[in-house]
């Protein structure tokens, strides 16, 4: 049996607020295999971006505990020198906002060249330029020779995101982390960018971690999905399983709160309460329990764990067995959505 490409074990990423450390990612374990898209879904404050940044080693002042095994080697807390040998080469990242992720004062070509030069300095400049033009063609940028000498502000948002993708795939990475890659883009552009990421993944046989809040994007792209809430993974499953047989109350709530194109809903489900801030996260018991006050307290575990309910399908806490929507229960009509 082959080892997974990336294996995260009990990762805990904490930030300092005042004198204390607070875990934004709390005991997360995940695996990503070759040629697989793992989507990590969650709302803002769920810790999904903090998780991605931990893998890339991009946190400045965070405390990182646990293991991040990339091809069997632990890259958590790796000294910068060693980390820089794999970042941008075997491990790369696509960022959310194409308007700010490129250096405004540097030509597009030079920004791509940088990542080649850093990992392949022996390649002569002319050869690198040739390859960059090919890369720009690969990400479907028209007139690549011309774009090579342009500055970011001369390109549209969609074109800039293609440049960022070109930087990310320049050294044919084995693992690609895409952090909300289409959130800032229009829908038609989003469809094109997602197509592109999918094709590149197949070409390079890479593993992809797709961070997003958009369940539609997940349904289109992912092989497996991890749902994060308040720093923890609450459900992991194959994409079909997750959408057709979601189990955790949070996953179910999230799915019923989005307006669907397929069928008419009179009212959208509203998750009770608000996402707790990092400082106010409940650290004991089921973290989602406060958002479903109509569910009995004693259905939660004292220390909720991930349970494998069918092969590859994990759910945290036992409360999923007892969860129902308040709308489904006549006596609970008093629960008014305007009281959040």
């Amino acid at each position: 049996m082959s080892n997974p490409l990336l294996e995260i074990k009990n990762l805990k990423t904490s930030f300092r607020i005042g004198e204390e450390y607070y875990a934004a990612v709390d005991d997360v374990s995940l695996t990503v295999n070759e040629n697989e898209v793992l989507a990590i879904v969650g709302e803002s404050g769920s810790g999904k971006s903090a998780l991605a940044f931990s893998v890339m080693g991009l946190h400045n002042r965070a405390k990182i505990e646990g293991e991040i095994l990339f091809k069997g080697n632990d890259i958590a807390n790796l000294p910068p020198k060693k980390l820089n040998k794999i970042r941008g080469k075997e491990l790369s990242m696509i960022f959310q906002d194409p308007l700010t992720a490129l250096n405004p004062l540097m030509e597009v070509g030079r920004q791509i060249d940088e990542v080649l030069f850093l990992h392949n300095s022996k390649l002569p400049k002319a050869k690198r330029k040739e390859y960059i033009v090919e890369l720009l063609e690969r990400v479907e940028i028209p007139r690549p020779e011309h774009v090579y000498n342009q500055f970011p502000h001369e390109l549209s948002g969609g074109m800039r995101q293609r440049v960022i993708i070109a930087i990310a795939i320049a050294n044919q990475p084995e693992l690609l982390i895409a952090d909300e890659p289409t959130t800032a883009l229009d829908v038609t552009i989003q469809a094109q960018i997602l197509d592109l990421i999918r094709e590149l993944k197949n070409d390079l046989n890479s593993g992809v971690i797709l961070i997003t809040h958009d369940l539609g994007v997940v349904a289109e792209m992912a092989d497996r999905v991890a749902v994060m809430y308040a720093g923890q993974i609450v459900e992991v499953a194959d994409v079909d399983m997750l959408f057709n047989n979601p189990q955790h109350p949070y996953t179910r709530s999230l799915l019923s709160s989005i307006p669907l194109l397929e069928d008419e809903q009179d009212r959208l489900h509203v998750i009770h309460g608000i996402v707790p801030s990092l400082k106010n996260l409940p650290r004991e018991g089921c973290r989602f329990s406060a958002r479903m006050p109509w569910i009995d307290d004693d259905v939660h575990e004292e220390h909720p764990e991930l349970h494998e309910i069918s092969p590859g399908h994990f759910v945290r806490c036992t409360c999923y067995k007892h969860f129902y929507f308040p709308e489904e229960n006549k006596e609970d009509q008093s629960h008014d959505i305007t009281q959040s």
């Binding site: 829908v187 038609t188 197509d195 539609g216 289109e220 992912a222 057709n244 799915l255 669907l260 397929e262």
Partner: peptide, 22 residues
């Protein structure tokens, strides 16, 4: 048509179909 086709479908079982349709 293009705009409507570009919206991601929430059912992963339709994925192949959607890509072809798009």
């Amino acid at each position: 048509k293009r705009l409507v086709a570009a919206i991601p479908d929430i059912d992963p079982r339709n994925r192949k179909e959607n890509i072809d349709f798009r």
